[in-house]
């Protein structure tokens, strides 16, 4: 399009704005990311491999993936249910539910972690009961999973609620009028309508689940090879002046995040026809 629309700024202003945006992204985003990879590979590929296959690193990677594998599906289920309830039904405590969903966004991650220490710690409300039964939550994997679920649970719901609100109820009503059951309506109509939003929510939740530091740090106990997730392991390595290894693991974490983004782009590209057909 070469014709100027009335809203458009002059050419110089336009390029200036684009330039500023790119410069900003380069400075804030690409430079640190590039540094991570540069530092990670400065010692050569062999050093990098050694750092990410060393036993504490391996267990940190495993733990991180395990935590994400539990937290993300649970939050997908919760996010779908909450978005469905909020956008397709009317009930009394809707504003309250909406506020609660936002809670983890407004609470500091450290506080999110402390909540679980207060509940399940040895001095906490359920501490002695759990201890008597030999159930470990805090300073063990369950605590890390709980804290991760807490900090990631708004992502899917928050992504879906505006989308489903915008889409309204008429597609679902059409399906119902055509004889579909509630489940059929959800599966054949609602889910396809929201799949890109859902996928995006899943990716965001997954990225945060793998990258969460604050809340997990509080409940982890920092036991090497056992309750250190990748971000915590990176901190440990960094604090041991083992910078090459710290950056190696950090670069792996960054790669995991990039992989999810690439996956999303591939899916969008493969289904661009279907997306265009949606008309929005």
């Amino acid at each position: 399009m070469s014709r100027r629309s009335p809203l458009q700024e002059s050419k110089a202003v336009k390029w200036l704005l684009i330039g500023v945006a790119f410069l900003y992204i380069a400075l804030i985003l690409l430079l640190p990311l590039g540094t991570v990879f540069y530092e990670a590979l400065r010692g050569g590929v062999a050093t990098w491999m050694e750092a990410v296959t060393e036993s504490n690193a391996r267990s940190a990677i495993t733990l991180t993936l395990l935590v994400a594998a539990i937290a993300v599906p649970l939050n997908v289920a919760f996010g779908l249910a909450a978005a469905w309830a909020i956008t397709k039904h009317d009930f009394r405590f809707k504003p309250l539910l909406l506020t609660l969903i936002d809670l983890p966004f407004s609470v500091s991650p450290v506080v999110s972690g402390l909540i679980y220490v207060l509940l399940f710690g040895a001095q906490g409300w359920f501490g002695s009961t759990l201890q008597d039964r030999g159930i470990e939550i805090i300073f063990a994997v369950p605590g890390i999973v709980l804290a991760t679920i807490f900090v990631t649970f708004p992502f899917v719901a928050r992504e879906l609620i505006p989308l489903m609100t915008e889409q309204g109820k008429s597609d679902e009503e059409a399906a119902l009028s055509l004889g579909a059951s509630g489940w059929q309506t959800f599966w054949h109509v609602t889910l396809p309508n929201i799949r890109w939003g859902l996928l995006y929510g899943v990716l965001l939740a997954n990225a945060r689940a793998m990258g969460e530091f604050g809340a997990v740090s509080v409940v982890s106990g920092h036991i090497r090879g056992e309750t250190n997730t990748m971000p915590l392991h990176i901190e440990v390595l960094y604090n041991e002046y083992n910078f090459a290894a710290a950056f190696a693991v950090a670069s792996l974490l960054a790669v995991l995040a990039l992989v999810t983004l690439v996956l999303k782009s591939i899916l969008e590209w493969r289904h661009r026809g279907a997306i265009a057909a949606r008309g929005h």
Partner: peptide, 21 residues
């Protein structure tokens, strides 16, 4: 499309489980 999506999602979240101990 739905199947591809599901596959992608489950791959994303479940694959790591295979290597878990």
């Amino acid at each position: 499309n739905r199947r591809v999506l599901l596959l992608a999602l489950s791959g994303l979240v479940l694959a790591p489980l295979a290597s878990c101990s």
